[in-house]
Simulated assay, not measured.
Amino acid sequence: MGRPNFERLEVYKLSEKLADEIWQIVKGWDYFTKDTIGKQIVRAADSISANIAEGEGRYNFQDNRRFIKIARGSLYETINWLSRAYKRNLLTNEQTKLLNPIIDELSPKLNAYLKSIG
């Protein structure tokens, strides 16, 4: 069995990149912060790529579209948590400058991928 098709998708690679960058940031937070906002933001970010993968594995357009919509919801949740983290001084300006371009690229690619299915 070859590699799954979703691993070749640029939108999937970008969502992995976002999740991995967030993971690295959250690892440096104190216990309370990790246990509250940290777990939430990591789960939301990881959910983006997980739903892209799951949708691709469903092999029908309707299910795939549904999972991409869930991935988009997870992206918006991630954006929300990043905003909360920034307002609580948990993110540095450098970290924000690193994450914002990924989000700015991922959001339209996720929408374009959704439109391309079916």
Rank of each mutant, 00 (worst) to 15 (best):
S47V: 01
T78Q: 03
L110F: 01
K97W: 01
S49C: 07
G2R: 07
Q62W: 14
V11P: 03
V42N: 01
T92W: 10
S47Q: 05
E7Q: 12
S116R: 05
A85P: 01
P108L: 02
D104I: 11
G28N: 03
F61T: 08
G57V: 04
Q62K: 11
Q62S: 13
S107Y: 05
A112T: 13
E94S: 13
Y31S: 11
R8N: 15
I48E: 00
L114Q: 12
G118L: 11
L90F: 10
N89G: 06
Y113R: 07
I68G: 11
K27V: 03
Q40G: 04
T92Q: 06
Y76C: 12
I68N: 04
T36W: 15
L82N: 01
I52P: 03
F32S: 13
L14N: 10
A53F: 14
V42D: 00
K115C: 12
N93H: 13
L18G: 00
A71E: 14
D20V: 09
T33W: 03
Q40K: 12
L106K: 02
D46M: 02
I22S: 00
G38F: 02
K97G: 08
R84T: 08
D35M: 10
I70N: 14
L75V: 10
Y86L: 05
G118D: 12
L91I: 06
M1V: 10
P101I: 14
R88Y: 04
L106T: 05
K87L: 14
A50L: 04
K34G: 14
E10R: 13
P4T: 10
L14M: 13
G38H: 11
K13L: 03
Y59K: 05
I70D: 00
Y31C: 06
L110H: 07
S116T: 15
V26W: 04
T96Y: 13
I102A: 13
I117T: 15
T36A: 05
K87V: 14
